[in-house]
Design a protein around this nucleic acid. Structure first.
Lengths: 156, 156
DNA sequence: GTAAATAGTATTGTGCACAATATACTGGTG
DNA sequence: CACCAGTATATTGTGCACAATACTATTTAC
């Protein structure tokens, strides 16, 4: 039985555990990504672009938004910075001029090799084993899909 | 056996699952906290202040930083906004003028009652049961403590 | 074929996060 | 006492997140 005190206790909140763990993980990425001169959200964008590049595709801004759950207010300035650095090219689609297409440059493609050891180096020395990471990741994905499935009661 | 493609695949990253789940949860808080006219980080600060208030204590900025893992660059402007709204009072300690003490106002204390149903309402209708939340929270806390324990190799 | 609805991106403004630096104070040390 | 190391908060600048709005292009309805 929980008292009202317990209900609002910081350390009892799932939300705070998520918030703190997320920032701790991104903090651990920071020095590794600094070697590539990328921020963490920029790294996530690059992950999506590298995936698409495997199939020779370029992608729309809206596709990045769908994968990463980010809107244009976040992605537009981020992509402009990546373009300034010469990692991507942004260009309006000629057939539908509402669309902006994002493609990797040679430099952007080349960076993938240098990034490939980042995930492996991340948790070295933390004593967190692979199995546990996979289980946690899958549970988070499952919770995420429950959170996203709900909220639009009847739109089909 | 993982190919290099899998290693960098977005959906295989624990970090992205954390990042996305964290934002999904805070997004779910947003409308509830809007009723209190609080942002999510402001709500976390209030949780700490409400805890301290149970014992009749006021707290230092550095204590808030320690609990929430936030620095003064984040907390100072946030606390100023809470002070403008009349929820807290910030004052320099008279005996040690480096220290700023944060205390709840009557209005800040009163808000606690209105906030007490927020955690319960949060996951209503998502099909995520209590047991699962507790397990996930505890696993995140455990991972967090491993991440935090490491990094300062020998400082005692 | 034009008006209305919709889709895709951009812009603006607010509020975090966090690095880097600055400021101010305290508590020793010689 | 002057000096110095350490502590506590504030300031500045950059880069997300996200709401709100705007703008343009396309599609649909009629």
């Amino acid at each position: 039985m929980k008292s009202e005190d317990d209900i609002l206790a910081l350390d009892n909140q799932l939300c705070f555990a998520l918030y703190a763990a997320n920032r701790a993980v991104t903090a651990r990425y920071r020095p590794l990504l600094a070697e590539l001169n990328l921020t963490y959200p920029q790294y996530l964008v690059m992950l999506v672009l590298w995936e698409a590049d495997r199939d020779g595709r370029s992608v729309r801004v809206s596709y990045l938004g769908k994968r990463l759950r980010l809107d244009s207010g976040t992605l537009t300035p981020l992509l402009k910075r990546l373009a300034e650095r010469g990692l991507v090219i942004r260009q309006r689609d000629t057939t539908d001029e509402r669309v902006v297409t994002v493609a990797l440059t040679g430099e952007g493609i080349a960076m993938r090799k240098r990034a490939s050891d980042v995930p492996g180096r991340l948790l070295c020395g933390t004593g967190i084993d692979e199995e546990r990471i996979v289980a946690l990741r899958d549970e988070l994905r499952s919770v995420l899909s429950l959170l996203e499935a709900e909220g639009e009661p009847s739109d089909r």
